[in-house]
Design a protein around this nucleic acid. Structure first.
Lengths: 322, 322
DNA sequence: TTGTAGGCGTTATCAA
DNA sequence: TTGATAACGCCTACAA
């Protein structure tokens, strides 16, 4: 494993000169440069990034912590990674499984300078714990949180959710049942607010029908189809927490011989592949844009730049389930 | 940013002693240890991993290169990451987009010692190029390749594919059309061999129906539904290259008013969520096991261990499309 | 049980 | 245009 000193020796120059040709910095004569490059080539030399990182105090590695891999997170991850790679950063992935201890590993990685920054896509610890680590490097999140230590690329779900509700209303549905994710998450709160305002606007009884919490998986959706079949006072439409749930609901409904949207309508959320596949009406949620913004925030902090963020908005995608 | 020397000074000991308490190595008296720990605590000290990596010549980071994120790869990635994290390694992700240059970045990361090893899930460069890099650290792959430089956790698709073919035959289908991925990949070759042997066994004409290559996306599946509708000599069953294709085919068929398996049967491959969702008969392909084996191979090489690999096999999952 | 010294491979400052 | 020299922060013989 040749190092910079060996190259210097063989090229008959000093290590600093080699370093200069490596980084195109400072002055170095044409001949010297050629000579050095020839030696580097011959010895198959490349600089050791550990040494560079140690010296520079930066690894050009950005961590990304997420509980699992799935449609929405993949989209975030993919766009984030692409943006990062374009700017010379690599990504290190921390799959937390929603386990606070594992997320702590990611945070500790930042503290121990293995990564320069961390994107906590979906958190496992409470915000205060996470905020403690922001002194070691930039931390951004996809979730809604208002803390100066943790910038967020969250988009208020209020607006997007309202788009879905208005659409259902316009289509004539009046008995809407809402299926939410974790009510502790502010994302959910935004949706709940939208529904409250929606009911107020159209003089509907907010609590006329049951609503659900802590739902989000395909299986949750499947179970909902059974619930619908067995319940007395049936909703005529569901606002799903995401496309996966909507997909489970729609496909299980078909298996049960139900007709969507004849028996009930379903509006998904996120506009992922699966919604297109199953022809589910959904809300387009510009995740890729958020991911790129997340990276921009990090890059701005790391490099003292002020790249402006992109403005983003929700959009209704009407298909066959409403 | 306190360093080891500062801690030593404040604790009134030498840096080596601090290092010893850090690593639980060598002798250090109870009192000294306590004293040192107290100072570390007070200064919020943790060792700088860059320095450790430089010194030790290892980063405890394993790269994983994949073209994109999707069902099968997620499964691989998730299991691989989990196995790695359990053993104290972190994962750095290289999304190549099937672009050889981007894969090269991953390979270069290995050469420049940013990562200790690399799992090339699905390659973008030719094997010879990749093999060149194996001198810088262990490289494993998920794909089939027989090269001493690149161990593979590939499972011969012959066996799995045959399971599907036999199933279709048992169900009475005789006009099977095969849809393959990249015929250059040895994975595909195994499947083609299976089909040839299958035809031989049942005295069928291997070329009675058209087969397809370079297919694999949802959209490819959707297009196949249209092809079927417009073609004269129709197959009565499709062996899909993966579940995504099968899903596209099945869902588009429904949109076109076709009946699966009435008009034609579909057998997927991989047994991912989407197949369950759409009730598609498929072949269970133990990806998680392969991922864990991939990590074991790397760990064995890196740490000179000989952890045995797990034996794995295919399985038919019968659902509603056959 | 503890300390000293040298080195891991680079970069950056300063002088020449 | 080039070269010494001193860090970056840690680990590990070896000596004490």
């Amino acid at each position: 494993m040749a190092n910079i000193r060996e190259i210097a020796k063989l090229a008959g120059v000093s290590p600093s000169t080699v370093s200069r040709v490596l980084n195109n910095s400072g002055y170095v004569s044409w001949e010297t440069r050629k000579k050095v490059q020839a030696v580097m080539e011959k010895l198959d030399y490349v600089p050791n990034l550990n040494a560079v990182s140690l010296k520079k105090g930066a690894t050009k590695l950005i961590g990304i912590a997420a509980p699992y891999l799935g449609d929405e997170i993949n989209t975030f991850l993919g766009n984030f990674a692409q943006a990062a790679q374009e700017k010379g950063y690599n990504i290190t992935l921390f799959l937390t499984n929603a386990d606070p201890k594992k997320e702590r590993d990611a945070l500790e990685s930042l503290r121990r300078r293995q990564i320069d920054a961390l994107a906590v896509v979906i958190r496992a610890n409470d915000w205060d714990t996470i905020a403690q680590y922001s002194k070691y490097g930039p931390i951004v999140t996809w979730q809604r949180v208002i803390m100066k230590e943790i910038p967020s690329v969250f988009m208020d779900q209020y607006e997007g959710y309202m788009l879905g509700l208005e659409h259902l209303h316009a289509k004539g549905y009046r008995k809407i049942s809402n299926v939410y994710g974790n009510p502790g998450h502010l994302n959910t709160i935004g949706r709940m607010e939208a529904f409250r305002d929606f009911c107020r606007k159209y003089c509907l009884n907010e609590h006329a029908l049951p609503h659900f919490y802590h739902k989000g998986s395909i299986r949750d959706g499947e179970e909902m189809a059974h619930w619908w079949k067995n319940t007395a006072d049936k909703p005529d439409a569901f606002m799903a927490p995401n496309d996966r749930f909507a997909a489970g609901l729609v496909s299980e409904a078909k298996r049960l011989g139900l007709n969507v949207p004849g028996d009930f309508a379903v509006c998904g959320f996120d506009n992922t592949d699966i919604a297109r596949l199953l022809d589910i009406t959904t809300i387009n949620y510009p995740i890729g844009g958020q991911a790129r913004n997340a990276f921009s925030i990090i890059q701005n902090r790391l490099e003292g730049k002020t790249i402006p963020l992109t403005g983003l908005k929700f959009e209704l995608i009407e298909r066959k389930t409403t």
